[in-house]
Design a protein around this nucleic acid. Structure first.
Length: 422
RNA sequence: GGAGAGAUGGCAGAGUGGUUGAUUGCAGCGGUCUUGAAAACCGCCUUGGGUAACACCAACGGGGGUUCGAAUCCCUCUCUCUCCGCCA
C-alpha cells in the first residue's frame, strides 16, 4: 500500500510511475485526494462536536457536585442533540475511511526508476546469462527420467490428491531432503536465522504481504477456520513483523525458512504444468529481510548475487532478469528473476524471484523502526526464493543425465549420500 | 470439547461511573552533583488522527450497547492462564 502522504505530495509522479506498470492511476489518485480532503473535513467537524460534548459533560459533573440538579438537567438536553449529530458524523467518517482504504489498496507499488517499461515477459531485461546452453541432443525430459529411476510417482499423487501433488520416492525423496538442507545451511552460513512458521495463515497475514484481497483465488482456503494455506513462506515470515516497532539498531533482520507452498494455479495448462514445471504443492526455502531504506537496494543486489551463487554451486546454467513493469508483481518495486535452463525441454524455468517491496508491505503491516532521535519510519521488506525445489530438480535431472545415470553436483553429495541416480 | 479466572503504557502493577491518558515501581532518556562512575536529587518518557504550529479528538485486547459522562456497568468475539476430557 502506498503511503497517503506520498500521494498528497506528488500525485503526478505516482500517475507517471505507475504507467510503467501499465496501470492507469489517474482516476483513482484523483478520487483518493478528493476523499482524503473530505475525510479530514468530517474529522474536523466530528472533533469539534465531541469537544463540545466533553465540555458539557464536565460542566454537568461540576453542577451535580455542587447540588445544582435542575441546571444539570438542562445541560443534559443540550448534549442529546449533539450526540445525534456526532453519531451521524461518525458514520460518515467510517464510510469515508473505508472508501479511502479500499482505493488505496488498489494501487500497485511504484516501480523503481531502473525498472524498464514493458508489457510482458518478452520485455524483461537480461542482465546475466551463461554463455553456452547445454545441448538437447538425446536428452529425455525430467518426467521420463523420474519414471525411469522411480523418483517421482505422479500417478499416485493424482490418486491421493490430484494433479500437481507429486509423490516423491526413494532417491527422489532423498534428493528433496538434501536440497532443503543444503539451501538452509547456506542461508545460515550467510547470516540468516532459520524459522519454522505455520503454513496456514489468517486473513490479516494475507493482507499484510499483499496476497489479499487481490489474489484470493490463488490460495487454498480452509473455510471451517478461515485459514489460507501459504503460497510462499514470505507470508508468515514477513508477518512476524506485523505491528512491530523495531529499534534502528535491530536492523537488518535476516530470516530464512523452509516450507511447503500451496498454489491453486487456476487457469494453467499444457506444457507449463507438465511434470515438475508447475505444481500445486512444492517445497521452497525462502530468505526474508527487513532493512533500512538507505540500504535496501544494495541488499537486493546482494540477495540476487547470493541466489546466483547457489545456482553456481549446483552447476546449473542460469540467467538473471530484471523484470519489466508489466511483468512485475503488484507489491514489488523491483524484481530479479533467476531462471535455470532445462536442456531437454529447451526452455528457461524460473526458480527464484528476488524483490524489494520498499514500504509497500511495511505500510500494510505497520512495520516501522525508530531511530535514536525518536523518528519513526517504515522499514523496507525484501524477499527471495533460495530456492524453489521442483524446477531445480527438473534441471538437475535433465542437464546431468548420462548413459550411466544422473550425476549430481558435488555440493549435494554429503547431503544425498549418493553421487548418481541410477 | 467442558468449567472457571483474566486481558491496563517497554515490563511490573494500581485504578469499579465525573479534570484518570491513566497512581506507583522498574527499565530508558536528559540534567544537577562527581576527576570519572555509582548513589542521591530534578525533569522527560504511549500511540494514532488533526494543525504551519497550537488547539482539539480518539485509544485501557477487538466490536457493539447503557449513560449528560465509562478503563470502570451490560452484550459479544478473540486471546491467555488454571482444572477436567482427548491426543502426537
Amino acid at each position: 500500500m502506498l503511503e497517503l502522504s506520498q500521494i498528497r505530495e506528488n500525485p503526478e509522479k505516482i500517475i507517471k510511475n505507475l504507467a510503467v506498470k501499465n496501470f492507469k492511476a489517474e482516476e483513482i489518485v484523483e478520487s483518493i485526494l478528493r476523499n482524503d480532503e473530505q475525510r479530514r473535513q468530517i474529522q474536523k467537524e466530528l472533533d469539534n462536536c465531541l469537544a463540545a460534548q466533553n465540555r458539557i459533560a464536565a460542566e454537568i459533573g461540576a453542577l451535580m457536585k455542587s447540588g445544582k440538579k435542575a441546571e444539570a438537567e438542562q445541560e443534559k438536553e443540550k448534549n442529546t442533540a449533539l450526540k445525534e449529530q456526532s453519531k451521524q458524523l461518525q458514520m460518515q467518517l467510517s464510510q469515508s475511511e473505508e472508501l479511502l482504504k479500499e482505493e488505496l489498496v488498489k494501487l500497485p507499488n511504484l516501480p523503481h526508476e531502473k525498472v524498464p517499461a514493458g508489457k510482458s515477459a518478452a520485455d524483461n531485461e537480461i542482465i546475466f546469462s551463461v554463455k553456452e546452453l547445454p545441448s538437447a541432443e538425446g536428452k529425455k525430459p525430467h518426467w521420463e527420467l523420474c519414471e525411469k529411476y522411480g523418483l517421482i510417482d505422479f500417478e499416485t499423487g493424482v490418486k491421493l490428491t490430484g494433479a500437481g501433488f507429486p509423490l516423491y520416492k526413494g532417491k527422489g525423496a532423498r534428493l528433496q531432503r538434501a536440497l532443503i538442507n543444503f539451501f538452509l545451511d547456506e542461508a545460515i552460513k550467510n547470516g540468516y536465522n532459520e524459522v519454522q512458521p505455520p503454513i496456514l495463515v489468517n486473513q490479516d497475514s494475507g493482507f499484510g504481504t499483499g496476497q489479499l484481497p487481490d489474489k484470493e483465488g490463488q490460495m487454498y482456503f480452509v473455510g471451517e477456520d478461515q485459514f489460507y494455506l501459504i503460497p510462499t513462506a514470505e507470508v508468515p515470515v514477513t508477518n512476524i513483523y506485523r505491528d512491530v516497532m523495531l529499534k534502528e539498531e535491530e536492523l537488518p533482520q535476516k530470516l530464512t525458512a523452509y516450507t511447503p507452498c500451496f498454489r491453486r494455479e487456476a487457469g494453467s495448462y499444457g506444457k507449463d504444468v507438465r511434470g515438475l514445471n508447475r505444481l500445486h504443492q512444492f517445497d521452497k526455502v525462502e530468505i526474508v529481510r527487513i532493512e533500512h531504506p538507505e540500504r535496501s537496494y544494495n541488499v537486493l543486489e546482494e540477495m540476487k548475487d547470493y541466489v546466483s551463487g547457489l545456482l553456481q554451486q549446483l552447476e546449473l546454467p542460469y540467467r538473471v532478469l530484471r523484470l519489466c513493469g508489466g511483468d512485475m508483481s503488484f507489491a514489488s518495486a523491483m524484481t530479479y528473476d533467476l531462471e535455470v535452463y532445462s536442456s531437454a525441454q529447451q526452455r528457461w524455468l524460473e526458480v527464484s524471484s528476488v524483490s524489494n517491496f520498499e514500504t509497500f508491505q511495511s505500510n500494510r503491516l505497520k512495520l516501522r523502526f525508530k531511530s535514536a532521535d525518536g523518528k519513526k519510519q517504515h522499514a523496507h521488506t525484501l524477499n527471495g526464493s533460495a530456492l524453489a525445489l521442483p524446477r531445480i530438480v527438473a534441471a538437475l535431472l535433465e542437464n546431468n543425465q548420462t548413459a550411466e545415470g544422473i550425476r549430481l553436483p558435488k555440493v549435494l553429495h554429503r547431503y544425498t549420500g549418493f553421487e548418481t541416480i541410477d
